[in-house]
Write a protein that binds this DNA or RNA. Sequence first.
DNA 1: GTGAAATAGCGTATGGGTTGAACAGTTTCT
DNA 2: AGAAACTGTTCAACCCATACGCTATTTCAC
Lengths: 238, 238
Amino acid sequence: MTEDRADLPPGLALSWGVQPVQRRGPKPALSVEQIVAAGIEFGDRDGFEAISLQKIAAHFGVSTNAMYRYVRSKDELLVLVHDKAIGQPPELPSGWREAATAWVTAQVELYAERPWLLDMPIHGAPATPNALRWLESMLQAMADTGLSQHDTLGCLMLLDGYARNYGDLARQLGAADNMPVQAEQVGQFLVPRLIEGGYPMLTAMYTNQEYEDGLDDDLEFGLTRILDGIQVLISGKS
Amino acid sequence: MTEDRADLPPGLALSWGVQPVQRRGPKPALSVEQIVAAGIEFGDRDGFEAISLQKIAAHFGVSTNAMYRYVRSKDELLVLVHDKAIGQPPELPSGWREAATAWVTAQVELYAERPWLLDMPIHGAPATPNALRWLESMLQAMADTGLSQHDTLGCLMLLDGYARNYGDLARQLGAADNMPVQAEQVGQFLVPRLIEGGYPMLTAMYTNQEYEDGLDDDLEFGLTRILDGIQVLISGKS
DNA sequence: GTGAAATAGCGTATGGGTTGAACAGTTTCT
DNA sequence: AGAAACTGTTCAACCCATACGCTATTTCAC
């Protein structure tokens, strides 16, 4: 009946709101929700590495070790922060292509807003409420494609991976835009070595400004490739 | 003539073998190559977080700070370790589809062998010799597709992202296989909540063993989707 | 040769982080 | 009233990256 939350992966039970009911003893000064919210706040302000038990404890005017009354480890905290920070998926339009586009776009926007999500070492298949909510929404949107569960899941992984990947790339290039001087220096350093080292294709791209430039601002390109590939599968099945 | 390596991103100069020539002073006891090799060794044995300046220094019987005579920061070390660890790309068969398959497969195998590569926070577009070698090899393999530089690069990013993503997934699921007990407990915890929380698709998948199971061992599925999508682009252009 | 310059590695120190154990105070159940 | 449970605290151990100043070593220029 009552599950033993002890043996579950860190954060699983807490993310689903399963908490041991407290009977006696002093009232806790904090709550897991508060702590997680503070973690997100810190991430939004100063990036991933600003999310530390120490900083959060200081923020609440509490000793670092007090955190361990709420969270078993930092890992657990990160899982909770991650799930809370991704929030709920958007409403998807009808039609699997449109839905997939909206789904990926929403993720990319999320990563643009909270780039530190890309730095989180989240291991294991998604199992927290919001993460599964995102999966579920897209699974439903692809229900009428006639694909098997296995194939649908494969497509989802493809889309999800692309969104993550694109978000990561966009962040890197966005950051590079802030230091155009350095980018130029890199070019000056690199090009002669590319020529001499036998990198003809990259040499051409680099001198054409195509490299570094041609990657950003093109979410649609890769997405169209994936959707076309899925389309081939769907059409071939019928 | 002589580039100022000072302002370049960490690791760039060293990865290309540009080192300040030393004229006087004691002979260095170590070399950057040795240090990088030790880093890889540690990663292979104990994973990403085993790669620390302290551990490497201890391994050579040298104080931690001596490392900073060879490497400007840990970040720099990681860039060097990464480039060395990915090694050179394989020879690719002719035909862009076959080449892409071989390219992605090689990467997946690399990630299987050195999963800690997936944990490395490598920011910025690739600029180190081996990383660019991988890019170059695939660029050449796609030269006869008639795609523009921009589109080719887009396809490459897609393939590269998929390889990385698949490698990451495979590792997670491989690790989960070692703890089937825990996986079962997760299922018992999750399924009732999926039912009650309104996750019909996931509920179906979970009870079908499709989730967690259907992801692994299917490198080809996603790859075929991508290749078909690229095929559509190539055919459409002609 | 000899001194000056350059440079290696060391010790010491700082500051950040996670986590453990023992303890004292608070609340609530019996 | 007393016991049980739970709180946050302090003390402590351990990991990590990095900065500064020191001394010993090597080599270049004279």
